[in-house]
């Protein structure tokens, strides 16, 4: 029988329309980029029995299984249940009919660096927060990319995402415990922003230069520097790759709590619903912000949110990025 597909339904179901006629590719989300190794058995089974026996590791920390015939989609979707159960339903994601596979593809897998389960630099458990975000925003069709990174080293490249969540630590200084060895000062000067300086044999921290990376805590041989147990995050926005104007995300909210970050991300969907260009097949969140301007975006996503006292919000953002032509955003009067 000739294939008669609703192409858009296939794509929304997290299957790709590929260049190989008749063959799709299954995409598996791994929120927070961390899962039980037991799932490899199922992934292998699907790849070997339905696909071409290979698995691609995606840039968004998922798996893509190529060359699965379109007619096998329902069958494979049913097989996916243990994965959906463990990685989505178990963290609170609402999926009406899990036996039908993934309910949406627009909002992408929330990626995360390995975080403080393993990495000494990380300021928090990135997978836990990634899953918390996934729970709030998935399933959703809006094209949004989010990544969570353990520290300002930003190994997950959160600043290349629409939302980059960067875990920061507020360094707390115990004046009495400091021996003035200068390890933190020298390190901050060499590796970070030079936020620390010596004064009277002790260390002073310039709060405006401190980016909360936690390096001073790592360096300190007496635990004079420790992290404020309260977790803080820097939220960067609207970084992107793409053809038109690739750019690094800019700092939106600084020293925010996890609750504030999650609430802002959740609010984004209301903002997008209001301002999205419905004449397009899809519109990427970054281009919506390009059209409405930062202030409209800011006021919409902060609406109803009580910021934690320490949080600071950007008054204005000077967008950068690469422009291929100086008139890239110029339009003729005929084009509305």
């Amino acid at each position: 029988m000739t294939l008669d597909l609703d192409r858009k339904k296939v794509v929304k179901n997290n299957w790709r329309v590929t260049k190989v006629r008749g063959k799709s590719a299954l995409r598996i989300r791994i929120p927070g980029g961390h899962m039980s190794a037991k799932h490899f058995d199922l992934i292998r089974q699907i790849a070997e029995n339905y696909g071409n026996g290979t698995v691609h590791i995606t840039t968004r920390q998922g798996f893509e299984l190529p060359e699965i015939p379109y007619e096998k989609i329902p069958e494979v979707n049913r097989m996916l249940y243990p994965l959906l159960q463990d990685l989505e339903l178990a963290i609170g994601v609402q999926i009406d009919k899990p036996e039908n596979g993934y309910p949406a593809a627009g909002t992408r897998n929330v990626a995360a660096c390995i975080g403080n389960r393993v990495c000494p630099f990380a300021n928090f458990d990135t997978t836990v927060l990634a899953k918390k975000i996934e729970k709030e925003i998935y399933p959703n069709d809006l094209h949004v990319k989010i990544a969570v990174t353990g520290c300002p080293n930003d190994c997950i490249k959160a600043r290349m995402h629409d939302y980059g969540v960067i875990g920061v630590a507020e360094p707390v200084y115990d004046y009495e415990r400091c021996i003035g060895c200068q390890a933190c000062v020298k390190n901050c000067k060499k590796k970070v922003t030079g936020a620390l300086a010596m004064h009277n044999g002790k260390v002073v921290r310039d709060e405006r230069l401190c980016i909360g990376c936690g390096e001073c805590v790592l360096q300190c041989p007496t635990s004079a520097w420790t992290r404020n147990p309260e977790k803080y995050f820097n939220l960067t926005i609207m970084g992107r790759t793409g053809k038109k104007n690739p750019r690094i995300g800019e700092l939106f909210v600084q020293w925010a709590t996890a609750d504030v970050v999650v609430a802002i991300i959740k609010n984004t969907y209301k903002y997008a619903e209001k301002y999205i260009d419905k004449t397009l097949v899809k519109e990427h969140i970054g281009y919506i912000v390009d059209r409405t301007g930062y202030q409209v975006f800011r006021d919409a996503v902060l609406d109803g949110i009580e910021l934690n006292p320490k949080a600071r919000v950007a008054k204005h953002i000077q967008w950068g990025g690469h422009f291929y032509a100086s008139d890239i955003f110029m339009t003729d009067q005929s084009a509305k």
Binding site: P120, A122, A169, S223, T226, P229
Partner: peptide, 15 residues
Amino acid sequence: RFEKQGRFSDTDIIR
């Protein structure tokens, strides 16, 4: 125990 005052985040020290 000094909770979460360790060298790495979410680790403790004892002093």
